[in-house]
Simulated assay, not measured.
Amino acid sequence: MNVIVARMAAAPRGTRLSLWGLAVGVLGLVVQWIADPGKFYPFPPGIVVIAVCGVLVLCTVRRWWAPVFSVLIALWIVLGGWAAGQLVPNLVSGDMGTVAGTVVMSLGLMFAAVTGTVAMAGVRHARAR
């Protein structure tokens, strides 16, 4: 646990924000899981995928492109889920837990995508000077 805290402390602000966005995305999946456990037997695989991407960000934290893993997973889940027709049914579900979890997950992941992109662009721009 101390290694994770040390890596987070060493990360640039934008990278840390993208990791927090991933954490909020996981929280949204947990809310969905609690609302409809049968939908995610035995548990939502997205939690593991997002966690692995977060670990990849932490492992590469000293590189300017480290947040790319946050950006890619966030866009894959949100845009891919929308394109595959899986996101909208969750948003209009009769189960308020599913709706709330989907909203929290989507907002957290989009936050991760935006902050990760801004972090990479900012570092890249600063290096170009």
Rank of each mutant, 00 (worst) to 15 (best):
T98N: 03
L72T: 10
G94A: 12
I77D: 07
A84R: 06
M96S: 14
V92I: 14
A84C: 00
W82I: 11
G101R: 07
G80V: 11
W64D: 13
W64R: 10
P89L: 05
V78P: 07
G81K: 00
N90H: 05
T98V: 15
I77A: 04
V68S: 14
V78K: 03
L72K: 02
Q86T: 04
A66S: 10
V92K: 00
I73R: 03
S93T: 02
S70R: 14
G101K: 06
A84E: 08
L91F: 10
W76S: 12
A84W: 04
S93H: 08
W76A: 15
A66I: 06
P67N: 00
F69D: 02
V92Q: 10
G101Y: 10
P67Y: 05
M96Y: 02
R62E: 13
V71L: 08
P67M: 12
P89Q: 03
A84M: 13
V99H: 01
W82S: 11
I73L: 04
P89F: 06
L79A: 14
W64L: 09
L72H: 00
I73V: 15
D95I: 12
V88M: 14
D95Y: 01
T102M: 09
D95C: 02
V71P: 03
W65Q: 08
P89G: 12
D95K: 08
R62S: 10
Q86G: 04
W65A: 08
I77V: 13
R63L: 15
R62Q: 10
V92D: 15
A83R: 11
P89C: 12
V78I: 15
A84H: 01
A83S: 12
S70P: 03
P67F: 14
Q86F: 02
G94F: 12
L91W: 04
A84L: 06
A84S: 13
W76Q: 09
G81V: 05
L87R: 01
W82C: 07
A84V: 09
P67V: 14
L75M: 01
G80M: 08
R63T: 11
V71H: 04
